Simulated scan of single mutants.
Amino acid sequence: MEYTSADAVVNLPNLFSDLVRCETRLYNALTESLRAQHGIVTSQFESLRFLRDHPGARVIDLATEFAAGVGAMSKGVDRLERQGWVARQPNPADRRSSVLTLTDDGVRLVEAAEETFTRKLAELLGNSVPDASLSVVAQAFSRLRAALEHDRIGLPAG
Rank of each mutant, 00 (worst) to 15 (best):
M1C: 04
Y3Q: 12
T4A: 12
S5L: 07
A8G: 03
A8C: 08
N11W: 13
P13I: 00
N14L: 10
N14S: 11
L15N: 03
S17F: 13
S17L: 13
D18L: 14
V20D: 05
V20N: 04
R21Q: 15
C22K: 12
C22V: 12
E23V: 05
T24M: 08
T24E: 14
Y27K: 03
A29W: 02
A29Q: 07
L30D: 01
T31H: 00
R35V: 02
R35N: 08
R35T: 07
A36E: 09
Q37D: 08
Q37K: 15
H38A: 04
G39Q: 01
T42P: 01
S43H: 15
S43T: 14
S43K: 10
S43Q: 11
F45D: 01
S47K: 07
S47E: 02
F50K: 01
R52Q: 07
D53L: 06
D53M: 05
D53A: 06
D53V: 01
H54G: 06
P55D: 12
A57M: 06
V59L: 08
V59R: 04
V59Y: 01
D61C: 11
D61N: 15
D61W: 09
D61Y: 11
L62N: 00
A63M: 04
T64F: 14
T64H: 14
E65G: 01
E65Y: 01
E65V: 04
E65R: 07
F66D: 00
F66K: 00
A67E: 03
A67M: 05
V70Q: 07
A72N: 15
A72W: 13
M73H: 07
M73N: 05
K75W: 12
K75V: 11
K75M: 12
L80C: 07
L80H: 05
R82P: 00
Q83Y: 11
Q83L: 12
W85S: 00
A87N: 11
R88W: 04
Q89S: 10
P90D: 15
R95H: 14
R95I: 08
S97W: 00
S97A: 08
L102G: 02
L102D: 02
L102Y: 03
D104T: 15
D105R: 15
G106F: 03
G106V: 01
G106Y: 00
V107G: 00
E111M: 07
A112M: 10
A113S: 09
E114K: 03
E115I: 15
F117K: 03
F117W: 10
T118W: 04
T118G: 04
T118Q: 07
R119M: 04
R119A: 09
A122T: 14
A122L: 13
E123F: 06
L124G: 03
L125Y: 11
N127D: 15
N127E: 15
P130V: 07
D131T: 10
S133L: 14
L134Q: 06
L134V: 04
S135C: 10
V137P: 01
A138S: 14
Q139T: 11
S142Q: 12
E149W: 09
H150T: 13
H150V: 02
D151Y: 14
D151M: 07
I153F: 10
G154I: 05
G154S: 09
G154A: 08
A157K: 10
G158E: 02
G158T: 03
